[in-house]
Simulated scan of single mutants.
Amino acid sequence: MEINIWGMIGLYGGVIGGLLGWWFGRQKARKKRGLDELYYHIWQKARSYSWYVTLGALYVFFTLLNFGIELSTAMVLGILLLTHVASWGIIGIILTINMSSAAPLQPSRVKVGLFVFITSIIVFTIISILTTNWLFLLFSIPPNLIALFTALTPKRKDSEVTY
């Protein structure tokens, strides 16, 4: 049995880093009175929506299995966990911006951005699985960043120029 030391450092270092970030963030929010009913409502709603995204990811994996593609358990569970946590965070950010911003996000921009984001992840994940080369997932970063900026940036009204 071979132990991958960097894998263990990444696995448990990620958990420790995530818990520390969560704890410090809650301490900061508590000092600024940010942990109110709206906060809990937004993140409960985001968690609920993220289960729908996770369900979609499950259907993608079952479809790949029906096409005869071999998938490792660790890879599937890792991608499902990443899908759930990332969608929870992204949906939570969108709901927070919409609830607390004077200029809410345009639903059409959010839908287009999320569609591009999800499609990019699915396409590059399938390509990575088919080619057994995970580096194809790196190609999904630019379209994902563009999609997130499109979805999370409110449309600004051009100021009228009067002469």
Rank of each mutant, 00 (worst) to 15 (best):
residue 48 S to P: 05
residue 8 M to S: 14
residue 72 S to F: 00
residue 83 T to A: 05
residue 72 S to M: 00
residue 160 E to F: 12
residue 92 G to D: 00
residue 129 I to C: 00
residue 128 S to Q: 05
residue 20 L to Q: 07
residue 125 T to G: 07
residue 69 I to Y: 08
residue 21 G to M: 09
residue 78 G to L: 01
residue 40 Y to A: 02
residue 48 S to C: 11
residue 57 A to V: 04
residue 148 L to C: 13
residue 52 Y to V: 14
residue 32 K to R: 10
residue 53 V to Y: 00
residue 96 T to W: 12
residue 113 G to W: 01
residue 113 G to V: 03
residue 100 S to K: 15
residue 143 P to W: 01
residue 102 A to T: 14
residue 1 M to I: 06
residue 33 R to V: 09
residue 110 V to F: 01
residue 74 A to N: 12
residue 99 M to S: 15
residue 86 A to P: 02
residue 112 V to M: 14
residue 61 F to Y: 00
residue 154 P to C: 03
residue 63 T to I: 11
residue 136 F to V: 00
residue 135 L to G: 09
residue 90 I to T: 04
residue 36 D to N: 11
residue 32 K to I: 09
residue 107 P to Q: 02
residue 130 L to T: 10
residue 58 L to D: 07
residue 31 K to I: 00
residue 46 A to L: 03
residue 116 V to D: 01
residue 71 L to W: 01
residue 127 I to K: 00
residue 27 Q to P: 05
residue 117 F to E: 02
residue 47 R to L: 15
residue 94 I to V: 10
residue 149 F to I: 14
residue 119 T to V: 13
residue 128 S to R: 09
residue 40 Y to C: 06
residue 163 Y to I: 13
residue 23 W to M: 13
residue 71 L to E: 04
residue 159 S to Y: 13
residue 78 G to S: 04
residue 67 F to C: 07
residue 146 I to G: 06
residue 99 M to I: 08
residue 84 H to Q: 14
residue 6 W to D: 08
residue 64 L to W: 03
residue 111 K to L: 07
residue 99 M to H: 14
residue 155 K to Y: 11
residue 16 I to G: 06
residue 116 V to G: 00
residue 66 N to Q: 14
residue 96 T to L: 13
residue 88 W to T: 12
residue 55 L to Q: 05
residue 62 F to L: 08
residue 44 Q to I: 11
residue 134 W to P: 07
residue 77 L to K: 06
residue 74 A to H: 09
residue 123 V to H: 07
residue 146 I to T: 08
residue 144 N to I: 07
residue 79 I to N: 04
residue 52 Y to P: 08
residue 90 I to M: 06
residue 134 W to H: 11
residue 132 T to D: 15
residue 147 A to N: 07
residue 150 T to S: 14
residue 104 P to S: 02
residue 138 L to G: 01
residue 116 V to R: 01
residue 141 I to L: 05
residue 3 I to Q: 05
residue 157 K to Y: 11
